[in-house]
Amino acid sequence: MKRFLPTDLPNLSNSSQDKNFVYGSLSAVWLVAVAFGLWGLMSYANRPGDQGQPVATWPEASGIERSNFQPTLVLFAHPKCPCTRATLGELAWLMNRCADDLDCHVLFFRPGQQDDSWSKTRLWDEAAAIRGVSVAADPDAQLASQFGVRTSGHALLYDPQGKLVFEGGITGSRGHRGDNPGRSAVLSLVGEDHVASGFIQASGSKRSKQHQRATCSSCVFGCPLRASQVALRALPAGAEG
């Protein structure tokens, strides 16, 4: 059997043996380093964004039409966020199943100085293509502010009475599609499955228990829709153009 195992040339010299040791040690270090790197990457992928303070009652002042007969889902999205593509994919999956039972609005962030073309990216088109979804711009994230949302991919589900029944992301991690608690909660709340509880804890949300009892929620993964004042000041002139 020995001959089937390509080994190092026989009679390795001492220097070769030393090298083997050195490279072997380096290999171990390398492996640990890579493991840490991958671990860090995984941690980043599972680190949610700012959950904000979604309003519990539909803000009529927002100007967005709400259905009085069926639930209304409002999804805030950044048109250039890489993670939001997964969110739109999940939205499409949802709408495919309950478009007739759900009014859906996707509001794309737009800087105030920009026109709609800044927002009309591939994500805008993808969202507009989903049946039952109406797409609109959200200049300077004013609507997001009215709804208390700070992160792209944040979805709010209001019942026909205008009461918030779900808030959070509809992806399981950053940019990753697939089965997740948010998607399942929306689906159940819209009518297919009324078992919505139990996901909240699993998703790692930090909501108060009181809030938890009134509204389902999940973690949101996406880019921030509103910058801090410090960040805005650091923006170079014309960067938004």
Partner: peptide, 9 residues
């Protein structure tokens, strides 16, 4: 995923 955004930044 070339960039990540904070609003327009």
């Amino acid at each position: 995923s070339p960039k990540t955004w904070t609003a327009a930044i």
